[in-house]
Amino acid sequence: MRLLIIINGILERATVYLLATEGSLIVQRAGLLNLGIEGFFAIAALVAYAVAVYTGNLVLAFIAAAASALAFNMIFTVLTVHLRLNHIVSGLAVSMLGLGLSYTFGVSLVGIPLPQNISMPMINVFGLELDPVIILSIVIAVGLWYLLYRTKLGYQIRIVGENPHVADRLGVPIDKVRYIATAIEGALVGLGAAYYSLVVIPEWSTGVTLGKGWLAIALAMFSLWHPIYAIGGSYLIACSDSLARVLPLLGVPVSPYLLYALPYVLTIVALSVVSYVEVKKKRLGIPTALAKVYSREERARKYT
């Protein structure tokens, strides 16, 4: 029974990581490095929780979370795509704004529990009670793979991330493609955040979302920006994440505070190993223009 709870915990956390990673993956494929993800993750988590508390409608909460994250992400898109500003600093600005706003307005929700009648309808898969979002996240991963490698939009996204100069001259509508990519990112991260605050945690306290968004960026990188590999990456990190809660339960004398660092350490190691292997291979087909500002008429731009 205890094992089942552990597995369920892993599944739930992995689903949050997977949704956020798939979102980050798609914008990185389009050449944008969006550090703002931390900000709209927090916004969406709060919106989901607030909507659930006040309306008691779970579906509405998920939709509101996705919509709010999508809308908030547009700040980043305007800054980087239209105003050609530095991706990293723009992302940090969006993150700070999002974290600040969600914590400020979340203060009134601290300690208020979700309504009793809210719970996920379960689907029985091979004798295992799974909630539909877990399955949905896998379906989305496969769907994104199809989108990236089998559709016109997918080709466009990949080319925009790999070589925006060529894409532009080929007539690919770069701005439009990047808007679509960030919209998808916003929606997926919003879903993940809603799932996190409604199902995984389920409560609201300040600082609950810490680092989840940024972890997703690294996850997308070490999954080589591949939607299917990202499933493996997310489950790996989810396992290390739940280790922090499981080991003390099993009586292993390790401080849980140190174990909280485990997913981050694992991520750094995995990212380094994968990057190293990639450097050796000099592979084509990865977003080589990641975080580079594209401006049609200009030669070189360093800081901004």
């Binding site: 990293i88 810490l210 972890l215 505070y257 909280y260 660092a261 981050y264 350490v265 750094i268 450097v279």
Partner: peptide, 18 residues
């Protein structure tokens, strides 16, 4: 290893805070 330093420095922030 060419690991993106923006991401790793952020991750290390959480390690330090742990």
């Amino acid at each position: 290893t060419e690991a993106n330093e923006a991401v790793t420095t952020l991750m290390m922030l959480y390690v330090a805070s742990s």
